[in-house]
Computed example of a mutant assay.
Amino acid sequence: MHRTYSMRQSRAPTASQIQNPPPPSSSTKSGRFFGKASIGGAGHAFRKQTAGAFGPDLAKKLSQLVKMEKNVMRSMELVGRERMEVAQQLSIWGEACDDDVSDVTDKLGVLIYEVGELEDQFVDRYDQYRVTIKSIRNIEASVQPSRDRKQKITDQIAQLKYKEPNSPRIVVLEQELVRAEAESLVAEAQLSNITREKLKAAFTYQFDALREHCEKLAIIAGYGKHLLELIDDTPVTPGETRNAYDGYEASKAIIQDCEDALTNWVTANAAVKPKLSTRARNLSQRRAHRNRDQSEGVDLSGQDPSMKDRESGLWVPAGAHREYQNDDDDEEEEEEEERVQPGHAGEARGREDERVATEA
């Protein structure tokens, strides 16, 4: 019997993909120093520990989150690949069984393989969430210099007032502090606005991807149980023969129905629709109305260009930081990290500690 491991040989775009075009392939799927293989759990722990070791203080916590999410994506990618291999092995094992078991395990292998491919697609959409969160980290890194400059001027004023209370430089520094506080105020406002915008966008990507993924998994599970009904599990006595299996057309029809259901699925037809309780709905609407009434504030967006044009150069892009130059290029980071085997992680950290101590 011809065995197949995918639901369809040529894949036309599904209704969901037409409505919401798929994103580019995830960054975890290409550019790996060791190919598709990974160091494993020790590598994940090493990357997580070193993620926040460099760069501006403001961005360290989010840097660690971004790196942890990349570990999650790599794990999901591995699960998807291994699920496809499991599907193939299931079909290979069933080939030597009775006709009904052989046919059903072949078709079950098709469904399990489809689950693996859905995992692969989910990783790409999950990367949209991670990249959006990463953009918040970059904004945080850009705001750090304005905070540092304001703090530096404040410290200089305090030091002069302690050592030279009558120094004329105090007046100059206080004027600089006023300017630094104004520029920092704009930077902080932009950070606050962008953080909220990007946070909502990022988790919208994640929850939409989760919803589609889980709905399609539920579809596959439902049709998989229909396939199981084709197996005759009535006990037989020794020497008794079972009725001849005649479910080949039925199993093909079930697979075809499953394919059609997956192809035609769109968010509007989702079976699970979250519903708020009356109390939750009232509280949410009340808060939305209150926020709308208080939303008439000062628009600071027009001040951003003037801040960037200042000769003082206080607004520094994330990629321009001396300690943060390579942070946008995750693949270069990954290559450097993967060159250090887990057994040498302690040695690498020791060298880093020694360097920091020397600079101090």
Rank of each mutant, 00 (worst) to 15 (best):
Q89Y: 09
Q325M: 11
A59G: 02
S192T: 14
K60F: 02
T195I: 05
T14Q: 07
S301R: 15
R196H: 11
I153Q: 03
E335V: 08
H289D: 15
L300P: 05
D155G: 03
E336N: 10
G52E: 10
E337I: 06
A202V: 01
P165V: 09
L314E: 10
E212Y: 06
T241G: 07
D232F: 06
V110S: 02
A318V: 06
K225M: 11
R281H: 11
I153M: 09
E323T: 15
E82P: 11
G319A: 14
S184W: 10
M76H: 01
I255D: 11
Q121N: 14
I92W: 10
I112T: 13
V101S: 07
A37C: 09
M73P: 00
T105A: 04
Q89A: 13
S75E: 06
Q144Y: 02
L173T: 08
K161V: 05
A244S: 03
R125G: 06
A15Q: 03
T241F: 12
A209E: 01
T278D: 13
W315I: 14
D208N: 13
E311H: 11
R130Q: 01
K29H: 08
R179C: 09
E331F: 04
Q159R: 15
Q325A: 13
Q156N: 05
P238R: 09
P22V: 09
G41V: 15
Q285R: 15
P317G: 02
Q19G: 07
P23K: 12
Q128N: 07
V101K: 04
P238Y: 14
L217N: 01
P235V: 10
N138R: 06
I136T: 00
F54P: 04
V298G: 08
E82F: 13
R322I: 14
G94E: 02
